[in-house]
Structures are given as C-alpha cells and as structure tokens.
C-alpha cells in the first residue's frame, strides 16, 4: 500500500468516527429534549448548568431522561460489542447474545432471583442483578459451547441458540405470570426489554462494568485480529488460543449480562450494529471495529429508544420491538449476501 492510499484510508476512518461521535451527541440531546413534554434544547443546557427553569422540567431532565439516555447509549454500546465478540468467536456473522440464547439465559436467572427475593421482600442491589444475569449468561454460553462441539454447521448452532432462547423465555414468562405480586409488575416490563426506570445509581454501576469490560476488549484487539484468520493460524502466530477463547467468552458474557440486568433482553443490536460498522469503515480490523461497534450500538439504541417512547406516546413500546424492525432486515440482508458470495 502506498503512502497515499494509506492516507485515504485514514481519512475515511476519521470521517466514519466523526459521523458516529456526532450522531451519538445529537441523539443524546434529542433523547433528552423530546418526549411527552418537549423541552427546548437551550433550557436543557440551563438545567444541566444548574440554573433557572421550572422544577418539573429539571426533574424530568435530570432524574428521568438524562440517565435513561446515557443508559441507552452505554448499554447499546456494550451490547453491540458483545455481539462483535461472539461473531469473532464463532466465525459467524449472525451470532449474537440474542440469537445464541445468552440474553435469554441472563433474563431467566434475573427473574428467578427477583421473584425469589422480592417474594421474601428482600431488596436486591444492581450488582447482585448483574451477578445473577452473568450466571444465567454463562449457563447459556456453556450450553452453546457444548453444542458447538457436536455441531459442525454454524447455522445449526444458531438454531440451537434460538431454541435455548425460547426455552428460557418460556420459563421466564411462566415465573412472571405466576408470581403476580405487586412488586413484580415491573418485572413484566423489564422482561420484554426496556430502558425505562433507570436511575443514576444504576448508570454509575453500568458505566463502571461496561467501560472496564470494553477497555479489556480494546486491549485484546491485536489477538482478535490474529483470531480472525482461524484458530490454527492464530496459534502459529503465537496466540494462546485456549486462554484467548476463555477471555472472549467471559467478556462477551459480562457485557450482555450487564445489559440484560438493566434493560432486559434487547434483540438484534448485537448483529446489526457490527455489520453496519464494518460496512461504514470498509474493514473488519478489530482496533477500529471495537470503538466503532461501541459508538454504533450507542447511536442505534438511542435512536430505537427514542422511537419506542415517541411513536405511540404516551404508550411506550418495548425496545426489542423497535430494534427488531430495524435489525431483522439487516440479518436477512447478511444471509442473502453470504449466500451470493459462496456461489
């Protein structure tokens, strides 16, 4: 590659990142301004500066919309990254926390813990929720890994993942239906996937967990690039494949577990965003894809959450309803394109 070609490439990456960052900021602002009560942007700025404005507007912005928007951005980023890791791990473009049943496993475990503890009126912290989600995610992941040993074909792996997802969802519904306590009404909303009701304490915890995990993923971008060439070549390049795989499983499970603990299962973000990011950058280099997926996931979830709140306001849609509308066509597109490439 000549110097000039490298320069062109770098310019493209720069503008791609610029677009993503600008979109993130714009959507953050829009999500805070728009809703059942529209608040002008300038007023929002004033509120953030801590001056003037009506008290009600101040509460809406500071206690409801701002933490919710931040959560959508952070969790969306984590979810997209988790999907990217799973796709790398299984060398399969439609692997993701949702398709492999990992989100559903986390969901099941969280609802079991909630029902059990709330039934005995014990308060649970968000960290405990993440813990429960992580255990559930790891159980699903373990099952998927077992299946991947038996099944050569990657499409079969996805099918088995979807099945695991259904089984977990069925049990969750069962638990939720029969635990119809006043405290558990919330659980119903959560189990469908939603960013509502997230407060600052939650945001603080998810920020720590997701950012630490994402940072670890970013540090691993070099081994991930080696792993893209397949296990045998990666090993020849000096990669400790066993340790690497374990880390990848661990990180992707932490990420999707954290998302599920706070927002319930959110579909398709994990597949659609990495795919869009790759096409935006025109490369699959992990060192670019990791931040790109994170930003892309943030934009995507902010956008979807905005629609979920606004389209049928005051009725709020579950987030997965919106992500599916935009995500599912992308999955179909990926599969058609792959088929065409193979023939």
């Amino acid at each position: 590659m000549t110097l000039q070609e490298r320069k062109i490439e770098k310019t493209r990456y720069f503008f791609a990142f610029l677009i993503l960052i600008v979109l993130t900021i714009v959507f953050l602002a829009v999500n805070v301004c728009v809703g059942s009560v529209n608040i002008p942007f300038l007023e929002v700025l004033q509120i953030l500066r801590g001056s003037g404005a009506e008290a009600v507007h101040g509460d809406i912005v500071l206690q409801i919309r701002f933490p919710r928007a931040l959560a959508a951005a952070i969790l969306g980023g984590g979810l997209a990254l988790s999907g990217y890791l799973l796709q790398t791990f299984f060398h399969n473009p439609i692997a993701g926390p949702f398709t492999l049943g990992i989100s559903s496993g986390a969901k099941l475990m969280v609802s079991l813990v909630m029902v059990l503890l709330l039934g005995n009126s014990i308060h649970i912290s968000s960290l405990a929720m993440i813990g429960a989600a992580f255990v559930g995610a790891m159980i699903s992941m373990g099952f998927v890994l077992l299946m991947s040993r038996v099944m050569e074909q990657m499409s079969m792996l996805i099918v088995s993942g979807v099945m695991i997802g259904y089984i977990c969802s069925a049990i969750t519904d069962f638990v939720v239906t029969f635990a119809d306590d006043a405290d558990i009404v919330n659980l119903h909303n959560w189990s469908k996937g939603s960013f509502s009701g997230i407060g600052w304490d939650n945001v603080a915890i998810m920020t720590v967990v997701i950012f630490v995990a994402s940072f670890c993923v970013f540090i691993m971008s070099k081994p991930i690039s080696a792993y893209q060439m397949g296990e045998a070549y990666a090993r020849n390049l000096g990669l400790n494949v066993r340790r690497f795989r374990a880390l990848l499983v661990l990180l992707s499970s932490i990420l999707s577990a954290c998302v599920t603990a706070f927002a319930g299962p959110v579909s398709f973000v994990g597949i659609a965003v990495p795919h869009l990011a790759k096409n935006l950058f025109g490369t699959s280099k992990p060192i670019l894809m990791i931040p790109a997926c994170f930003l892309g996931g943030a934009v995507f979830c902010l956008f979807c959450d905005l629609l979920a709140r606004v389209v049928f306001a005051p009725t709020e849609l579950s987030i997965s309803t919106i992500t599916a509308v935009f995500g599912a066509p992308i999955v179909i597109w990926i599969m058609i394109r792959r088929k065409r490439e193979q023939s």
Binding site: S225, A226, Q228, M229, G238, S284, I287
Partner: peptide, 30 residues
C-alpha cells in the same frame, strides 16, 4: 505455516491477509 484449512476473513483485502504475518513483530495494538 500454510495449511489446508479454509480461512474466511470478512472484508479483508489480500494485503490485509498477508499483513497478518507481521503479527509477531508488531506492538501491543498490532
């Protein structure tokens, strides 16, 4: 090594693939 197993790297040019051979010599971020 040059092996018989098929590699299916997504969106990588031939040059990108060749460049993966430099892995042992590059820094922390490759």
């Amino acid at each position: 090594v040059v092996l018989t197993e098929r590699v299916r790297p997504e969106l990588m040019t031939c040059e990108d693939v060749v460049a993966t051979g430099r892995y042992p010599y590059t820094g922390k971020f490759g």
